[in-house]
Design a protein around this nucleic acid. Sequence first.
DNA 1: GCCCGGTTTTGGTTTGGACCAATTGTGCGA
DNA 2: TCGCACAATTGGTCCAAACCAAAACCGGGC
Lengths: 237, 237
Amino acid sequence: MPNSTLPPATTSLPGATVKYVIETLSTRIVTQEYATEERLPSERQLAQELGVARNTVREALDQLEARGMIRRRAGSGSFVTYDPDGQGEALSPVASETGPLQLQVVRGILEPDMVRLAIVNMSPKQIEALSVVLSKMEAVQTDAAAFVRLEEEFHRLLAEGTGNPLLIACYNLVLDARRQSFRTAMYRRYLTPTRIAIYQQGYNGLFNAIAARDIEEASEFMKLALIEDQRLLLQED
Amino acid sequence: MPNSTLPPATTSLPGATVKYVIETLSTRIVTQEYATEERLPSERQLAQELGVARNTVREALDQLEARGMIRRRAGSGSFVTYDPDGQGEALSPVASETGPLQLQVVRGILEPDMVRLAIVNMSPKQIEALSVVLSKMEAVQTDAAAFVRLEEEFHRLLAEGTGNPLLIACYNLVLDARRQSFRTAMYRRYLTPTRIAIYQQGYNGLFNAIAARDIEEASEFMKLALIEDQRLLLQED
DNA sequence: GCCCGGTTTTGGTTTGGACCAATTGTGCGA
DNA sequence: TCGCACAATTGGTCCAAACCAAAACCGGGC
């Protein structure tokens, strides 16, 4: 079949491109690689850099805008509105009335199974995105706030890795509550460099288990992290 | 036509095309020109009829789907979900994009632990409220819709019985998705009086276990109910 | 130095085409 | 008649390109 034209070429995995762009950009935003208020590269530049069509970049930006992470102005550019220490936003009301222990309980219910689902569902690109976040986490030495943010991003990627919109929505509530907890309870005080190192080890093991598609191992690491959190919780006050 | 390139042509007013398609289609839906549950023309047909590109039709359909007026199934078609006698409040958007299987997965994660928490947390009054709903359920003979509503109420009371606001919020999402499932997938057809009797037995056992504060027994009953739902799901076609 | 108009950059919209994946329909053979 | 493989249909994703409108940028003229 002497097809005259075949522009798409389809070298990359289909169906994962937009999500890949979203994950890449949202990670960069969360890690402040694109700082708050900063202008991010033009759509055309991003398209070239990421090796996708502008259309695809646009769709990703649409969703980031819907999430409230960026704001776009025609003729001017796209700007980061995401605020890491977002004092601003009213988190969902449930977040504020959820106690640290209650948060821990729900995490204990969701996360082990969430990892299982993610493992059997994540695409290579999604795992790649996860590894990017992991390496940034490993680079953290003392900045507890940054570490917490990266943890959230890591968990968010896991949730999206399940491909289950309902589960993702539930876990977004969990993350809201978690953010709230960190704001009020000031765990950060207890996130010493030593503890950060412990967590880094845990996340590293978790990621390796995920990359190896070792379901039980990963679920076990997830539980360990939860137990560690619990210990931190009890030390408080 | 020897012209090398001029795809857009731009015969119609620019910037109003998508809106025009949305208005046209949503009007047809609201006026029941495309009746509820009916399949509307394929995207390619609509594109031709309205004189726009398929992409434009898709974008319009995206928004109609976001509004909950239609639902799309790859390989099958787009179907009107809008109900003119809409009791139907706007369900949370996640509800519409959650499939029956994904719903079942999340329920399988949450419900067994939810029962455990409820048992150790419910006050006598709350258990009393539960028994009231149960007796109403047992009075149902053939009205599948009523039974489904009572089931929801039963589950809601359980969730509230945990006293965990975060868990309650998560489970509300689950219930939204469940309601959506019943609307679209028409399980009701399979909820014969015989099946209702089976469920009644299950809920009765579940309640007794709860009243007796028998955690393992209750969790077991909960799982059984889930399995029963699953069977019902698989029979669907 | 300041304003004003053209040029450039940037996001916004639409087109058309190719290919993928899920579903449905169909016809042939056991 | 029953099933199963194959083809057609349908929504899902991505690409490349053109044009528009708003904003920013820049250089000349006052």
